[in-house]
């Protein structure tokens, strides 16, 4: 794991805000859990816990530390706030390949991102639950005893989603959070696709939850008051 001291090395190292979007129950949180912990939980409860999770992605030319923001269920009731999209450098728009309405919903989210998010945002369209499609169902069925699971439940052809993604210049992958297939690949593709100009140095000004005021980090001087140090000082002050 790269230490802070190594951050001075020529290799680019940067924090990137990634937001998840997509219909409820398409597997957004499961994708993150697979990427962050290499884990999968059947019948996972809707997301509760942290405001965002972090995970590093080491590439030959750069190290990207993703701050992965989950919707915390707010996509369900029209309750995602503008602060959610703000300063997101990349978005993962997820649908379920077995559920046609979920792609329609994904297209809406893409349009919403193009309207609301930063102009340079990198969007990846991800069709999840690939394990439920026939070819995968057969290859991954060694442990499955239930024949019903071998059924091909794919409802959205790869070609259809891929064509749409190309039209809108989105990265496109089909994944399985359950088997892990393509999950790492999606995040690596995103990490590669983020333009260098939007990468800001790690620990730079304004990397709070709300993100720093846009482009202020490149000004050579800071506008954001460092609350982390101040908080620590306040706590230490209390202790004595």
């Amino acid at each position: 794991m790269a230490s802070r001291e190594e951050a001075g090395a020529p290799k680019l190292s940067s924090s990137v805000k990634l937001v998840l979007l997509g219909e409820a129950a398409v597997g957004k949180s499961s994708l993150v859990l697979r990427f962050v912990n290499d884990d999968f939980q059947e019948n996972k409860e809707p997301t509760i816990g942290a405001a965002f999770l972090t995970q590093k992605c080491n590439l030959p030319t750069r190290t990207i530390k993703f701050e992965i923001w989950d919707t915390a269920g707010q996509e369900r009731f029209a309750s995602l706030a503008p602060m959610y999209y703000r300063n997101a450098q990349t978005a993962l728009v997820v649908y379920d390949i077995t559920k046609p309405t979920s792609l329609t919903k994904a297209k809406h989210w893409v349009a919403e991102l193009q309207r609301q998010a930063s102009p340079g945002i990198v969007i990846a369209l991800v069709g999840n639950k690939l394990d439920l499609a026939s070819s995968n169902a057969i290859s991954a069925n060694a442990d499955d005893v239930d024949d019903a699971e071998n059924e091909d439940r794919r409802a959205i052809p790869t070609s259809e989603a891929k064509a749409y993604a190309e039209e809108e210049s989105l990265l496109f992958y089909e994944t399985s959070a359950k088997t892990g297939e393509n999950v790492q690949a999606v995040f690596e593709a995103i990490a590669n696709a983020i333009p260098e100009s939007t990468l800001k140095p790690r620990g730079g000004a304004g990397t709070g939850m709300g993100g720093g005021a846009r482009s202020s980090a490149n000004e050579g001087h800071s506008h954001a008051v460092n609350m982390a140090d101040a908080t620590r000082a306040a706590k230490e002050g209390c202790a004595c």
């Binding site: 915390a72 602060m83 709300g210 720093g212």
Partner: peptide, 29 residues
């Protein structure tokens, strides 16, 4: 100090998200 992106408007949005993160449900409209 002031909070970037709208002052107290930003506070409200972040608090509501924090409520969702802690298991609450927000419904707009």
């Amino acid at each position: 100090l002031t909070v970037a992106y709208g002052g107290s408007a930003e506070l409200c949005q972040v608090f509501s998200r924090a409520a969702a993160v802690a298991g609450g449900i927000n419904v707009l409209g």
